[in-house]
Design a protein around this nucleic acid. Structure first.
Lengths: 351, 351
DNA sequence: AACGATTGTGGGAACGTTCCCATTTCAGTC
DNA sequence: GACTGAAATGGGAACGTTCCCACAATCGTT
């Protein structure tokens, strides 16, 4: 049997064609190992417990010798699943989303899966089109970081029988992997309160995102605990973008009396706020303390490193992938919540 | 024939199964339209010129009515190509790479393709593993933004018969889509010279990247044209990271006489430099002018908006996709070069 | 009217895998 | 050594497409 050293067309340098007629197929491996393709297929099936029988060894060795790699399309066609997960995020140029995506890629890889991403530009209905593209491409499930309050898209997916998990933002019903935004908001606000601040402005983010709403709740809770009534003017709605932070901070700066600290819904708006403050001639933390959220890499390298709330994106990613893989989740266990941590830096001090 | 309205198991609400036994297949469409599956396949083949014949119309209508979507795995298996392109970037949390990727996704979509991304963390040999993963996944070609001077990986790919294009960075030999870094470096430096600066520091980036080297050349060319000898101390090597910019700027600040302006190889290092400057109590542009490179969104929103060089990532992405799709490129036309533009903002002024 | 050239059609064999099912092999027991 | 049940094996039919080929229909030309 050893005489028939693979009919695969090996190139002069010993390398093997990846595509086309010379491709090494399971059939070649089986022939080389002297077994049927059924057996070869079974041995090479990564989902089975790994056997160390004589045949298994021979097959694996033959596969390695010939440089066999399974044809993903053929396997997917037969299996009915692609082992691929689609990820939908507003935009990758938002570092938070890039971080989430990189961790999702890692987590998926650990679970023997693969992720592909599509962006929506945060346009309200664009997630439909993105999901469509991904689904047509054959993904087994979806991870959405684009959930909006009151949006019926998740239930539409549910109806269509599409497996999906919400990440970072939740609708309170669908399977979700999020961070404890309420706690994060609480920690940030509590930190400012502990430093002695009482007039604390809030750049609140958009109401459509549960993440933003949670942080606002945490803020209110901390303020209430400290018996500090919240002046409605202190809470300014915004988007997640830098400019929006600048604008919101401008609003807060104009108040009389002016707040002595600002908690921004994310690092982007905090950076925007920083611009507004600097342009108004206010120093951080001298004239105004500032807390961000997410701990994106840049904020620790700013002239004044930013106090912020760190989010364990790796945990969130792991949980999201697991939730997606879980075929029969417990009805009461489809919400995974990761814990945020406050990272004090130079942008906060006493008033 | 019209009586046989699809054996596809339609759900009560009129929706159609995406997977499993109830799936609408080409066979169903053919039956519904009263033609053979060969004909249906031809009509629905997006690569053919679109016909408006009677049958074509009937087939398309049947497909729409049944909610048919082609099974990507089956098509890929038979066609031998997946219409998918793999993109390899150092990291997506680098906004430059995120921008490139988003534009690549757009350009690919325009060409009827799909992109998937893998990251290397800029680890020297990690691109091998990333390429392997992508290739095993069945991508038709690769776009690499990780090229390193003197690396033999491109020629290895060439040997293996893998189609690929380098983006942003080139090795001078392989098909590449880049921006004119020399020109960009020239424009930035010339801008500073025109403002009256003579002692111009350079945060040079890593020598392994052609992009960085090109910008350095542009710098030297501009300086030479202005009859301004370059003090070797003015040129500080760095990485592309923020911290590295801080460190390099620290070096430049310590010089006697101190440069009056700094040109940083990218916006990240410019932001790092900004930190160093601010911490040293130097104002921008009062005490020191600063120019970045790439025009990532954040730099226009900094307290002092950064003068930078804008790169048309959309053009670069288009060219990369086209280059990859071009099966028989002219030997002398495998290098596409996009033009950068200087964007003057507040971070530069006379010395 | 006859001819070749062009266009459109359907049958059926691939593509490379997985998985059902029938068969063989093997270890263990009486 | 015959008998059982479990475990391992191979044959072959899928999976849903595309594409080759043979044939039919249509066209324009002489």
């Amino acid at each position: 049997m050893a005489g028939r050293t693979g009919r695969a067309l090996r190139r002069g340098d010993g390398r093997v064609q990846r595509k086309g007629p010379g491709r090494v197929t399971l059939h070649d491996v089986a022939a080389e190992a002297g077994v049927s393709k059924s057996t070869a297929s079974r041995v090479l099936d990564e989902r089975m417990p790994r056997s160390d029988s004589d045949t298994a060894l021979r097959v694996r060795q033959a596969a390695a010798a010939l440089g066999y790699v399974r044809d993903a399309s053929a396997a997917s066609l037969r299996r009915g699943r692609t082992m691929t997960v689609g990820v939908i995020v507003p935009r990758l140029t938002d570092t938070v989303m890039a971080m989430l995506y990189e961790e999702l890629a890692l987590a998926a890889s650990r679970a023997g899966m693969f992720v592909v991403v599509a962006t929506t530009g945060d346009t309200p209905q664009a997630d439909r089109a993105a999901a469509e593209r991904l689904l047509n491409r054959g993904v087994d499930g979806l991870i959405l970081a684009t959930a909006r309050e009151g949006d019926e898209f998740p239930s539409m997916l549910e109806d269509e029988g599409v497996k999906f998990v919400l990440a970072l933002r939740t609708d309170g019903e669908s399977p979700s992997s999020v961070a404890d935004d309420r706690l994060g908001g609480y920690l940030a606000t509590r930190h400012l309160l502990d430093l002695g601040h009482r007039r604390i402005g809030l750049i609140a983010g958009p109401a459509y995102a549960s993440s933003a709403r949670g942080r606002v709740e945490g803020y209110r809770q901390a303020m209430e605990e400290a018996d500090t009534p919240v002046d409605p003017d202190w809470v300014v709605e915004s988007s997640f973008g830098i400019e929006s932070g600048t604008e919101a901070a401008g609003r807060l700066i104009g108040l009389h009396p002016r707040p002595t600290a600002i908690f921004a819904v994310n690092d982007n708006t905090a950076i925007g706020a920083l611009s507004a403050l600097t342009r108004s001639g206010l120093s951080v933390p001298g004239d105004m303390s500032l807390v961000g959220y997410n701990d994106i890499p840049i904020v620790s390298h700013l002239p004044t490193p930013l106090t912020t709330v760190h989010i364990p994106f790796d945990r969130i990613a792991d949980a999201a992938i697991n939730l997606l893989g879980d075929d029969f989740p417990e009805e009461d266990d489809l919400m995974r919540v990761a814990m945020p941590t406050l990272i004090p830096r130079r942008s906060t001090a006493g008033p």
